[in-house]
Amino acid sequence: MLRLQVKKCHICGKRASISLTQIINGQISELALCESCAKEKGIFDPQTLTFAEKFFPEDIKAKVDKIVRELAGMQQGEATDSAKDEQRDLLVRCPVCQFSLSTHRKTGRLGCPSCYTVFARELAQEAGVMSSDTTDSPADERTELERELQQAIEREDYETAAVLRDRIRQLNDTPHP
């Protein structure tokens, strides 16, 4: 991730001076704000992130929706069925920091070092999918890429999103087995 770039404020588009990398309602990983918007939204203390519930969902959802609309022909399946995970014997919450598996799937992040052990199976799966592109059938790969794309959009990582979108298009162009 590029951390030294000066970003645009998500609210007014002016040059942002602060950037929050914070998990809010399991939704967002990065939010750039200019100082006046930050103050206006009462974010003098970003650690009390109540503002996010007020303005973030609509604001970012609109952007995400726009991108999703652009990705014509794609369907996102919500795979975060925690009951299903429990059946598959996966721990859905880290006992040390209370971080949940579904938040990881949405944000790509983890809550604490212990999460690496708690969610080891999930992480291994993710790593496995990434390193074995060639052994996966195109359909599996497409599903995985779509999930990664959704995560990238949620992270507002549009550069990665664009790359993933191109790869999905390439896959769609190749004939199905």
């Binding site: 951390r3 602060i18 950037s19 003098f44 970003p46 650690q47």
Partner: peptide
């Protein structure tokens, strides 16, 4: 360049 944008938003 002696502070990152992420750090600029931090507090206590």
């Amino acid at each position: 360049k002696q502070l990152t944008p992420c750090m600029a938003a931090r507090q206590d």
